[in-house]
Design a protein around this nucleic acid. Structure first.
Lengths: 209, 209
DNA sequence: GTCTATATTACGATAGAC
DNA sequence: GTCTATCGTAATATAGAC
């Protein structure tokens, strides 16, 4: 298995996906050219076509990987049975995962419309698959009485919008640590569904009351 | 003031802005050509340049108008002094306004990155101006004790993300009326900030409890 | 106010040498 | 596996006739 030093297929492929992700997230799919991506990788534009048949496939590959990874990461964790704990856990997981992959998240929300129909449906189905996990928690909590007066489908969308929106303003190294943010949003979410937040009667957290 | 029948400057300009808004919202600024816009309006591509110096100015004009209109519409309403009522009012206003102008809203969230620096700063400042109105309500409620254990800046972003996210799934004529949605989200929001929602002990609303 | 025609530049993708 | 060169197309924007 002799390899040329400095350039293997896997290496280059990873660099291409990384560059595409950064550029698409920053400027948008339609505004980025294959030449820009190649330039970022350090190869000629024509070389990209040994790794992806089209620009569209490059985008679809990025989004598919992201959604697959997200669902796999969530399913790999253990989930509390108690709805209140499960919702707290979901909130923290979603925030933590999304804050560590801001580009992928941004892309998967902004560039759905750049996908051709087949790819679009595939990604939309994967997203719905993930959302279903939150709807299930909300429905369980409604049944046990842990949550009150909520409609699971709408509430799931409301919560996901709220949590994902963090990526619009969060910058690492800011006033609040990631853990502060998780704790704060968990309280917002638990209150919103009519539950008593975990730390409500134990105000040691860093927020002013 | 003799006018040629069928085509005045104001008419055509309005059509151009309308077409640009629709197309940019649907396919993204970078993916839409001046030819497409002209075709939608029913004029030749070159005619557009009598109404806007560049494509970039067309986008900036759309976003500026939207933010100006949003702020003017909010300021034109009367705002309750009581923080709880004020927050309920803000929630309903934001939802109602955003659901009536889905394209403008979508554009102003998706195409900020397509703006060149000067325009970007201008729009960002206008947005912050609007957000400030919500922060003010939250800070007042914290002072009076109507809201508990919240941080106004973060909570404002959380609420705005949640409310604006409605435009991602709402379709007119669905299961829930706009008023149902306003009522439901007002409860989510008021609960989240630690207030007792207006209709909490009066569960005549259409949600199941 | 709108048109035809065009200058200039860039795009996605391919062919074929090395 | 990467390159040079290029094909065919389409982009923004402008010039100038009517």
């Amino acid at each position: 298995m002799a390899r040329k030093a400095g350039s293997t297929r896997q290496d280059t492929e990873a660099k291409i996906y990384l560059a595409a992700r950064n550029l698409f997230a920053r400027f948008g799919y339609a505004a980025v050219s294959m030449r820009q991506i190649a330039s970022e990788v350090g190869v000629n534009q024509a070389a990209l076509y040994h790794y992806t048949p089209t620009k569209q496939d490059l985008l679809a590959g990025l989004l598919t990987r992201h959604m697959d990874d997200l669902i796999a990461a969530y399913d790999a964790e253990s989930h509390p049975d108690d709805p209140l704990l499960a919702l707290d856990h979901f909130t923290r997981f979603h925030i933590a995962y999304h804050l560590t992959k801001p580009d992928e998240v941004f892309l998967s929300y902004m560039e759905l419309r750049s996908l051709e129909p087949d790819h679009f449906q595939k990604i939309t189905a994967l997203r719905s698959d993930y959302e279903e996990r939150l709807r299930h928690i909300l429905a369980s909590g409604l049944k046990t009485g842990a949550f009150t007066a909520i409609e699971p489908s709408i509430t799931a969308m409301a919560i996901l919008s709220m949590l994902t929106g963090i990526t619009n303003w969060y910058k690492p190294g800011g006033r609040l640590s990631q853990d502060d943010i998780e704790t704060y949003y968990s309280r917002l979410v638990l209150r919103a569904v009519g539950a008593t937040p975990l730390a409500e009667e134990n105000p040691q957290c860093s927020m002013r009351a």
